[in-house]
Amino acid sequence: MNLMKASLGLRIYFWVVVAYMIFPVLIVIPVSFSSSEFLRFPPQDISARWYMAYFNDPVWISATVTSFRVAVLSTLISTTVGTMAALAISRAPHRSQTPLTYAATVPILIPHIFIALGVLILALRLGLTDSEITLALAHAAVAMPFVVLITSAAIRQIDPTIERAARVLGADPFRAFRVATLPPLIPAIVAAAIFAFFVSFDELIIAQFLMKGSETLPMRIWADLRLDISPVVAAVSGLLIVVTTLAMMIAEILRRRTVRTLAP
């Protein structure tokens, strides 16, 4: 037994577990192309019927548009605020860095249902429920820790002397930042924005508690799954699986590229 090489048993085990993680998700795609009224595997015949049903149903489309709008607003907020916080942490004196990082990432540790309930009760008192802006801000608070973690990792790779050099050469603080520090951070910021987008786009509980008049996509899926499962959900899931996979691959590549190009 060589410790530096995986045994055949371990190799097989690895692929079995990967199948367990990925297979249930993949199976949704063929099912979504069924023409039957019921979710069935294997599908009897191939059709795009439920995809058409999705695109032609104003309820589904409006839920998708609402989610998109909220997610874009939330992403803009969380990415800006989170990147600023990450910069603040990197510039803080050494002993303050850990407490600041803890403070900025604490929402990860709190159950979403707790945040949802708290935001709902407070918003009820202030008359701020049923507002897409409240929802987007709440989503931004939940997504911000991810932005802080991703951009912090990239900032750590940057040589601070370059910005200092720009300052010495006469650039004002903002220009020095824009020219020296910002450009190498862009891929990480874009990656963070993609993650933040999906944190909001996929979030159910806060939206479910806060929104009464309009509906987000997860709320629509939830309502559908609770009543009777229509195959439209399979079509929506199929679309989301493909879109999420593509977006996450781009985000991961960007995130890795920052780390690689900046590593000494």
């Binding site: 910069l87 603040a88 900025a104 931004a140 608070a141």
Partner: peptide, 26 residues
């Protein structure tokens, strides 16, 4: 060196308004 606190302020506001205040209200 001091400007880092200003950069942290928006994050702090978001945390206060959407995490801490709701928890207190709960």
């Amino acid at each position: 060196a001091r400007s880092y606190l200003w950069l942290f302020l928006p994050a702090l506001a978001l945390l206060l308004l959407f995490i801490l205040a709701p928890a207190a209200d709960l």
